[in-house]
Design a protein around this nucleic acid. Structure first.
Lengths: 246, 246
DNA sequence: TGCCTTAATATGTATATACATAATAATTGC
DNA sequence: GCAATTATTATGTATATACATATTAAGGCA
């Protein structure tokens, strides 16, 4: 979550929010360099004329956000940032397309229900074989293909998917409606379009493409593996780093 | 920050941490779907046999982490996840190369100090012209070029860079030592290698490459713009989504 | 001067209490 | 039955107090 104070009517002006904001501003502006000792809690209670618990609340939040580190008896110190962690927002493809001011269209290319094989087990990180659904889809921006989707759904985790044709709804939003709080790992790389991809995206064989592979876990088991392929010129991912994130 | 309880000796077993962990587990497992009302604070005080402030502390953290939303008089409700926000960790290239079990080597290709032009103003989002430093570098993994770096440093923000040759130290780690808490925006896409890139990375003209462009801000002004280009087969970015992040 | 013991201190966690406030529910009057 | 008013209630924020505990500083002694 963001620690930076915003014009949020809910917390604007509350004392602990002011303390939190003042201190994070000093850190992020460089006024307090890594290693600098933040004033002791009792010093801050005098400075802000408040209780120790109010100061403690603000400092605890800064610690959780990763800006400071707290050491008993020693005090609180500005941290050196860990590896920069940029937040990459993953949107439903429809949202991405419509943000470009284009009309979105979805097309199911193929759908097969079968038993998982060795490659599937590897993609989904499954321990044992079971029923899976494979889907191949295209997402259009205006008249142009925008993304090629190749997906594997673990039917043990989402049995309902067996009864869904995915003719009119893309699997991504359908799944997020059923497994809303899931974990995911994304792998992002560049590839040269193979013949299948070239045909699906209407680009030249060997053209550069951006590939985002995502594996998703629901309640302790894998739900889906999906590979999105975008033509190089049609997609840029944006990730932002704000140092207040954990 | 992560809300999920870990085997952290610092907080393991503390009551508010247990409450936080229990509730986030129910949400992430799907036991409590979006829209579900979390028990009222007074109900949780009875359930955990503790004070309202302890419960409030845990619920406030869950709210800040984005898992629940709090409404006065109404209660707390499980939220539908916003767009999934995957955390993309950006490491120093040396760390990436060494994680591959390869030897890292850095080479400065070119360095120029000059006044910013129109393209620079655009890249750095500067309002007015000033002195800049341009750098072209290569990063090697073993004997192979791993990344091609083209950088622009705003000397108004980091005047010290004017006195640094960057012969033995890459600009990235040098800058993070001086502007530790900065904000950044990354743009990730696929491109076909142009002649400069092909030569720098020792790949074929037109080969697919992964490009990560990063613009960094220090204290309210831009610090640097950098474009890293990686050969397609040498680099995969990994981003992880854990729903406890804001 | 160095080591051991004791005292002091800053943070960690929790509870009790208080008041504020937004929102919901109940009551009253027409 | 509906609107206005009042009461109730759940969260928001803060303070006071207490005890726990890890770490640092001070003192004594050999």
């Amino acid at each position: 979550m963001s620690v930076a104070a915003t014009a949020d009517p809910e917390v604007a002006g509350s004392l602990h929010a002011r303390i939190l904001s003042d201190i994070s501003e000093k850190i992020m502006s460089g006024a307090w360099a890594p290693g600098h000792r933040v004033p002791f809690e009792h010093e801050l209670t005098e400075q802000y004329n408040c209780s120790r618990m109010t100061v403690n609340k603000a400092l605890s939040q800064l610690a959780k956000a990763g800006l400071i580190e707290r050491r008993r008896r020693s005090g609180s110190f500005v941290r050196r940032p860990r590896s920069q962690a940029a937040v990459l927002e993953i949107h439903d493809i429809r949202v991405e397309v419509e943000a470009l001011g284009l009309a979105y269209r979805y097309e199911r290319v193929a759908r097969h229900r079968r038993r998982s094989n060795g490659a599937d087990l590897s993609l989904l990180e499954l321990g044992q074989a079971g029923p899976v659904l494979t889907l191949e889809c295209r997402h259009f921006a205006g008249e142009r293909p925008f993304a090629h989707e190749q997906r594997l759904i673990n039917l043990a985790a989402v049995p309902e998917a067996a009864g869904e044709e995915f003719l009119d709804i893309a699997p991504g939003p359908w799944l997020i409606g059923r497994v809303p709080w899931s974990e995911a790992e994304h792998r992002i790389r560049a590839v040269a379009a193979d013949s299948r991809t070239a045909q699906a995206l209407d680009i030249e064989l060997g053209a550069p493409c951006l590939v985002v592979e995502r594996r998703t876990w629901g309640a302790e088991r894998p739900v889906t593996h999906v590979r999105f392929t975008y033509a190089a010129e049609s997609h840029t991912l944006v990730a932002r780093f704000r140092p207040s994130q954990g």
